[in-house]
Amino acid sequence: MSDLPRVLFAATSADKVGSLDTGCWLEELAAPYYVLKSRGFEPVFSSTKGGKIPIDPKSIQEQYLASTSRDFLKDDEAMTKLNNTVRMNEVDPKDFVALFVPGGHGVMIDGPKDMKPLVEAFAKQDKIVAAVCHGPAALTEAELNGKPLVKGKKVTSLSNSEEELIGADKDVPFLLEDRLKERGAIFEQAGNLEPHVVVDGKLITGQNPASSEPLGKAMADALSVAIR
């Protein structure tokens, strides 16, 4: 194991939502992975059940396959990490400088409840917590000092209009934009499928897959200051 500061990636283990085959959206895992590696951090992969992270089959179809996803699929080290994750309830947040939750519809299933303790632990330690697209589902049940973690915080996620655009609004258990607002978040968004990252203190969120790389850069920038 290297001496580099480590960032915990917390991914879904759910491969179904409604009638959809799903999992983690590969670009949202791959883009931040390469950004953080290039900036001197060690990404460590975990998932709610451990073992292999299910990848949303749509995210590896040619029309959706991002360049970072292509690189990731050919990267033996990265694929070994993806196929052999530690269960997230077996990690110690003290060993990491930040938490990142990639999206994909799967996290709508296990994010709110199963990732809640991990999110809360990082927040209580005043560490950076980041999530992209559907990843902020992991923030919706988390609390800090007896109130919702996102209350009064500027955040973004896949918007209602984007969920409708991709035709998944009837399959998801809730609309993420609505749930974040219900929990007191100040929701911000750019146009549909446009990259957009929101930084509010040590909470960093991205709107959609196109926001994955800029979110990784925002995390690296914030971490460079936080651990200086």
Rank of each mutant, 00 (worst) to 15 (best):
R6E: 14
T156M: 07
H196T: 03
D76I: 14
R183K: 15
V91L: 11
V225K: 12
P173R: 09
A30I: 03
L139V: 05
S69L: 02
G167I: 00
M219A: 13
Y34P: 10
C24I: 08
L176G: 04
I128G: 01
K217V: 08
S69G: 13
L4P: 03
S69M: 10
G103F: 00
I109V: 15
E162K: 03
G104N: 09
K154Q: 14
P57F: 00
L8F: 08
P93V: 01
D126P: 03
G152L: 13
G104E: 03
I186R: 02
D3Y: 14
L176V: 12
V172I: 12
A121K: 13
K116I: 01
D171G: 08
Q61F: 04
Y34S: 11
E188Q: 12
A78F: 11
K37I: 07
S159W: 06
P5V: 04
Y34I: 12
S212C: 09
A78R: 08
A98P: 02
M88I: 04
L175P: 01
F96V: 02
S59V: 03
N160S: 08
A14P: 10
L99Q: 08
K37N: 06
L223H: 06
E163D: 11
G184Q: 07
S67V: 07
N89E: 09
I166Y: 05
S157T: 13
P32N: 05
A142T: 01
P32M: 07
R228F: 14
G18D: 04
G206T: 15
I60H: 10
T85V: 09
L26T: 03
A185C: 11
D76A: 14
T68Q: 10
A78I: 05
L82Y: 08
D15V: 07
T22M: 09
D92C: 04
F174I: 01
G111Q: 06
R87K: 15
K16C: 09
K217A: 06
A10T: 10
Y33W: 11
A137W: 01
E120S: 04
K52L: 09
A218L: 06
A210P: 07
G191C: 05
D71H: 10
N208Y: 09
L165P: 02
V7A: 12
I128H: 01
S157W: 02
M88G: 02
